[in-house]
């Protein structure tokens, strides 16, 4: 009998979590779970890192050589999902990432005085390309 009550408690706990997710979304502005493909714009975004040498020479840092793991069937690498690069909430982490790339470039004989991170945005409908530099870190 005690076991039956325990089982019912587990079931009620499960239902409470599911119901709680709905209540949170309906009344407290929470996000519903399982939001895969719940919205998309016409933009594809690609991260680019540029090493700028002391003479102003610009060399692209090959991110796909540093981050070799590609997600699922895509060519997306770990930095593509690194939140500090997409929002502005953690500038320290973003700068640390840029410095890490700079150190890598220096270790591979690429002249580097600063590192610039750029989002290249491609409109998938018109194929128009825009580049937006969002941080430059001095080494």
């Amino acid at each position: 009998m005690a076991r039956r009550w325990l089982v019912q408690l587990v079931i009620l706990g499960f239902l409470a979590v599911q119901g709680g997710l709905v209540v949170r979304a309906a009344f407290f502005g929470g996000k519903l779970p399982w939001r895969m493909f719940s919205g998309r714009t016409n933009a594809d975004r690609y991260l680019m890192a540029v090493a700028i040498g002391p003479t102003g020479q610009r060399t692209s840092i090959p991110l796909e050589r540093i981050f070799r793991y590609a997600r699922g069937s895509t060519d997306l690498r770990l930095p593509d999902n690194f939140r500090p690069l997409t929002d502005d909430t953690d500038r320290e982490a973003r700068d640390r990432f840029a410095r890490f790339l700079g150190e890598w470039a220096r270790g591979h004989d690429i002249p580097v005085a600063s590192v610039e991170l750029v989002w290249v945005v491609v409109d998938v409908d018109t194929l128009r390309v825009r580049a937006r530099s969002f941080v430059t870190v001095t080494m």
Binding site: A25, K31, L32, P33, W34, R35, F37, S38, G39, R40, T41, N42, D44, T74, D75, L76, V122, V124, D125
Partner: peptide, 25 residues
Amino acid sequence: FAKTIQGQGWTDGKTLYYSMLSPQY
């Protein structure tokens, strides 16, 4: 519900349209 109430571009098909056009997805 995430797509229709909180998401966007599903009732007009744009999310799926852009997803299929995208080389990334």
